[in-house]
């Protein structure tokens, strides 16, 4: 039981980078980017191939980050310069990457068993492994926070918030969008590279459904930990990723639910649907009860005035 929780925390910390990436596109740029499903596997593929060809695991992992950046730039160009709808440009890139990833690895499955990875020296000690992964995830979270408070970062955030306004202040919104999408996919690919090295293989279909997992992490995190500013929201994405993995681990262990590992994607989709529907429904209800309360108050005021006259 405890082992599966530790495992969930480890996975959650590695997938946290992916969640931070999804946060950039989904929340900051308001751009639902499906490239993620492809770029996650791209990161895994690049890292796996380079490691099996004898490159240092750290260089392989950095190259994976670069590959993700490049994929993001392509999606950004399709959307801004090609004027293709955002969802569609992500889908197009995702499909294209499916073939590209096979070209990179040359086969659907690349094993890393017996190879040295960035985790080789720490993975055998659970607590050390968790500490190292936590340090990596927190470092990237802090870097992202810092970036989002620079002049360029502010322009990026304003692009998603009010692009007409930021253009009138001289920011090229095509450029800020491309930078944001690239950065997002860089983080996603980095996450893919880490998962491949942790799991000991890169698989061409390991990215399928990744965007939904990213959304689930971001949304669960926001619901539990709040998102009132960037610092809180990035922390929420990181923690959301861990909570998601723990929920999944517990769900799979609950025998009375009769769940298989293959049901994971359905569970994730349902979690995202619930997390998307509930806040909206709750807001609508709150709005209505507030409107009703105010109406009653106003009516009472009017009645009071009129009642006074009638009584007199």
């Amino acid at each position: 039981m405890l082992d599966s929780i530790y495992g969930a925390i480890e996975l959650g910390l590695m997938y946290a980078l992916m969640a931070l990436g999804v946060y950039i596109t989904f929340r900051i740029l308001d751009f639902p980017d499906l490239t993620v499903d492809g770029s996650f596997a791209t990161g895994a593929a690049i890292a796996a191939v380079m490691i099996t060809h004898g490159y240092h695991p750290l260089i392989a992992t950095l190259a994976a980050f670069g590959g993700g950046l490049l994929a993001g730039v392509c999606t950004g160009l399709l959307h801004t310069k090609g004027k293709i709808n955002g969802l569609l440009s992500g889908i197009l890139m995702m499909i294209a990457l499916y073939s590209i990833n096979l070209r990179i690895t040359g086969k659907p499955n690349t094993s890393l068993i017996g190879e040295s990875t960035i985790f080789s020296s720490v993975a055998s000690t659970t607590w050390l492994y968790i500490v190292v992964l936590l340090a990596v995830a927190v470092a990237f979270m802090l870097l992202l926070n810092a970036f989002l408070h620079t002049d360029l970062g502010l322009a990026l955030r304003a692009t998603g918030d009010n692009d007409r306004m930021i253009r009138s202040f001289g920011a090229n919104t095509d450029r800020t969008k491309i930078i944001g999408i690239a950065l997002s996919n860089g983080l996603v690919a980095l996450s893919g590279a880490m998962i491949a090295q942790d799991g000991g293989y890169a698989n061409n279909s390991m990215g399928i459904g990744m965007i939904v997992i990213g959304l689930a992490s971001v949304i669960i995190g926001e619901a539990i930990f709040g998102a009132k500013n960037v610092v809180r929201a990035t922390l929420a994405a990181l923690l959301g990723s861990i909570v998601y993995r723990i929920v999944i681990a517990l769900a799979l262990r609950a025998d009375w639910l009769h769940l298989n590992a293959s049901d994971l994607k359905l569970i994730t989709a349902i979690i995202v649907i619930i997390a998307l529907v509930i806040p909206t429904a709750r807001r609508a209800l709150k709005q209505r009860s507030l409107a009703r309360k105010r109406s009653v108050e106003l009516a009472a005021e009017v009645m009071g005035r009129r009642g006074g006259q009638v009584d007199a």
Binding site: T150, D151, G153
Partner: peptide
């Protein structure tokens, strides 16, 4: 801070 950078390059210094 966004208005302050009007017409200038937006880099990596604090907004």
């Amino acid at each position: 801070a966004i208005a302050y950078r009007r017409g200038r390059r937006r880099g990596l210094s604090w907004g």
